[in-house]
Design a protein around this nucleic acid. Structure first.
Lengths: 147, 147
DNA sequence: GTGATTGCAAATCTTTTGCACTAAA
DNA sequence: TTTAGTGCAAAAGATTTGCAATCAC
């Protein structure tokens, strides 16, 4: 342990990001590392490709929008992210892949997690013959309160 | 009552379609009447704009795809239809506007109603301050059963 | 007549893809 | 080296829009 504090905080997150990618068998490229750090350092997030691309630019991480899309899809396929569908025409990606649901603020387009223990679906009907339930999604749509 | 049977069955649905449009203050144009009849004569339906346009063509109802889109949006705004979002990139419109939920067959893209009395959400969390719940959507995603 | 509605083509928006170039193993 | 990954521009798919022609009232 001979790193000084400032070096530690620089290096540790990189190591974590690299490990996260290695775990899912994706090469830790400069672009993926940058996106992993934006996505996973700092709590649960819900982002669109466009948003993440803008953030990357702001953070001096040079990456094309096409690569952001491809990366988000790869991360989703690898189980690092979960795609949330609340609006036709726009895809959100959620860094929280555990069982939970969402509030959706219709006017701002913002998503917010609802822990799974806070909502329960009572009596999910049996799936039709020949099918199995892949997932149950609950979206609580919110409008701003009119007085 | 002096119409013969064949004339009755011709005329009654038109009258109903006209009334349905008048109720929501939309002029009963040839295109809207055709679409209303396709949508509402024959049980609950879940359609995309593309599907409805194809049906209209098949039924000799001349209407452009742009008008189908505009009409579906107008009907939704008027409360005649409800938009169901299950896949980013495609909008479904549901002729059932009462409180209910959906099965979504992921491989076929088919939607199926779940009557509201068959699922219950237990303990919907309170909406964040300044907001009110507009709607709670439950989508049960189905995959075809692999043996 | 007059304002609403329609059709068409063009525009827009989001997302995907083909391919030559670059980088990781 | 060898194969995976990237950027760019072009393509694709869904939906919206501008505007002249048409239709309902």
């Amino acid at each position: 342990m001979f790193y000084i504090e400032s070096e530690m905080t620089q290096i540790r997150p990189f190591t974590q990001a690299i490990d996260r990618l290695k775990t899912v068998h994706l090469r830790p490229t400069r672009q993926r590392l940058g996106l992993v750090r934006l996505l996973f350092e700092g709590g649960n997030r819900h982002v669109t490709a466009e948003q993440l691309h803008a953030e990357a630019q702001a953070a001096q991480i040079r990456v094309s929008l096409a690569t952001v899309y491809n990366t988000l899809n790869q991360f989703t396929a690898a189980g690092l992210l979960r795609e949330v569908t609340v609006e036709a025409g726009r895809s959100y990606f959620d860094t929280n892949v555990s069982d939970h649901h969402h509030f959706f603020h219709e006017d701002s387009g913002r998503l917010q997690d609802i822990p799974s223990d806070q909502v329960q679906v009572k009596d999910v009907p049996p799936p039709p013959p020949g099918t199995a339930i892949a997932r149950v999604d609950i979206v609580v749509r919110l409008k701003s309160q009119e007085k």
